[in-house]
Design a binder for these strands. Structure first.
Lengths: 307, 307
DNA sequence: CACCGTTACGGTATCCGTAAGGATT
DNA sequence: AATCCTTACGGATACCGTAACGGTG
């Protein structure tokens, strides 16, 4: 059993059981991968794949179980690299962050500015996506951490650290009838077409629950994951926006009216996601502390080692 | 980075930084190990060892951190082997149990008899030692599980599953004056020289606490980890024995008087120890259930994944 | 002097890439 | 017909064991 064999196995599974494609990303030949996997299967005397002739159809049960452990081993090789990199040079390295657009555009710029000042040698890479896409990137190792606008619990290897609460608000064109509703109620809101995030009105989401409780069925005319998109279409008069308060700013959004809706919906929670087994470099701890001061190194280790 | 390199590194550390001895257990040459470790250090661009000329003095801090992760990786290779073995043949394999003499001689025989009847193809190996030695064997991977007479919390990778409570008793030669003390008190016991386990009267142990509370300072004339040894010397009149009730049997120990002391000391707890990350084979789960029926597969996984 | 780690060297085994073969969609 | 996995083969590479070298206690 070699790391290479496990690596190949994992990459084939990740490429939908296509050895040829896996070979491309691994910079080797199909034959090499095929051979190594056969050797692995021989050594373990287990079929990892169910084959039909010369096609790989799916992963066996044994293969599934092996896969989980192999993935941890691969993560551990990355951990070892991170450990040694940390020991040779604290201040140099990469930090890949996956975040939702709200975080990337509104919460992070200030944090990253500060961080970059103290760690000019650390290359930061940002990628944006839905909360689940972000979580995915962390689990697969493409990102070191994710910052999402909700707590994701589907992944056993992912640890979510709650950071901040955030409330929701309604944005409308200026002089919109809603601006005269004081206090603002759910009934008022439900009267107008809504533009909001993809998952805001998903089943059992806090907002959906709030409307359901009053038997209101608001219409959603448009969804987007980027609050700037939402605000643009609100300006065009397509509907009213239901977004996070972090995504609005009275000065920047002068062409919009901002109506606080914190009293109408349960607050949301921003959380940082990490892979449980992953080694966190010193500067990553520092980054997290800039984002959420209560998350000290000790606090994080505690959450990571317990459940 | 290869598994071989990590394996070599770990084994050198385990052999007190002696490459030559490590080479023996690894069935290879000193030169091979030396080279691979240098290659590893080069790839990671980190010194794993502090050397003085051609002596290896100690492990660097970086080396320590790498070691921990490397050990998990090695454990994971064992896990993969166990996984695949489980899928090819549920009923064949090894089960290495480390236990204290009390468990090995008194609690386990019946369990192992039953187990062996349902899994005749599983080779059981028993090793005995002090609770800490047993825990050590599990942590280093020499044993799959340990059964100890106390809960050991020093090892972060070790998960202890409480199984049974046990009480203590006093064994004396027949017609000993103590047999006439009814009810038996701590003061009575403290009047005679005591023969007991090594750690029974350690600081803050339940027994020590009981004596301390009454300001009694019993004398211990002899300690042993094996209750049969203790009983032998009790028979010879050296003193009275303070042992676990599991270690006495009215029929087998006819030449001794057995006095229950459950009302005088806090009960002890028998626990099974497992390495958190380890894959547990089906028959091992079955073995554990034979020993402690409440420890189902689900119960164990729960404890293993949470803290 | 005994022990030990490092370096050098030659043989072997392994692994890769190319290319051909065979199976499936 | 196109795609894809497997097998075969030759060459390059990596690895190991032996042995000599250089430090250390």
């Amino acid at each position: 059993m070699t790391l290479k064999q496990l690596r190949y196995f994992i990459e084939v599974v990740r490429h939908n059981l296509n050895i040829s494609r896996a070979a491309q990303t691994l910079c080797t030949s199909q034959a090499a991968i095929s051979k190594q996997i056969h050797l692995l299967e021989e050594e373990l005397s287990v079929q990892l794949f169910i084959r039909h002739g010369k096609r790989i159809l799916r992963v066996t049960r044994a293969g599934q179980d092996v896969l989980e452990t192999a993935e941890r081993m691969l993560r551990d090789t990355e951990n070892i690299r991170a450990i040694t990199a940390d020991h040779t040079d604290h201040s140099r390295g990469n930090l890949a962050i996956a975040g939702t657009p709200t975080q990337i555009y509104y919460a992070l710029p200030h944090v990253i500015q500060q961080f970059s000042a103290s760690y000019p040698q650390v290359q930061i890479s940002l990628s944006q996506g839905s909360p689940h896409q972000c979580a995915d990137r962390v689990v697969t190792g493409e990102a070191d951490l994710c910052i999402a606008t909700e707590v994701i619990e589907e992944y056993p290897t992912l640890v979510m650290l709650p950071c901040h609460q955030w409330s929701r608000c309604i944005v409308t064109p200026r002089r919109h009838p809603l601006t005269r509703c004081k206090p603002l109620t759910l009934e008022d809101i439900a009267r107008y077409p809504i533009i909001t995030y993809e998952f805001t009105l998903a089943l059992r989401s806090p907002t959906r629950v709030a409307f359901d409780r009053k038997n209101l069925k608001p219409t959603v005319v448009l969804t987007a994951s980027d609050p700037r998109v939402i605000k643009t279409y609100v300006t065009l008069g397509l509907g009213i926006g239901l977004v996070s308060s972090t995504a609005v700013d009275a000065r920047q959004d002068r062409n919009l009216a901002i109506l606080d809706a914190g009293h109408l919906f349960e607050p949301g929670i921003t959380a940082i996601g990490l892979v449980r087994d992953s080694y966190i470099r010193q500067y990553a701890y520092d980054f997290i502390r800039l984002f959420a001061p209560q998350l000290t190194r000790e606090a994080i280790t505690k959450v990571k080692t317990r459940l």
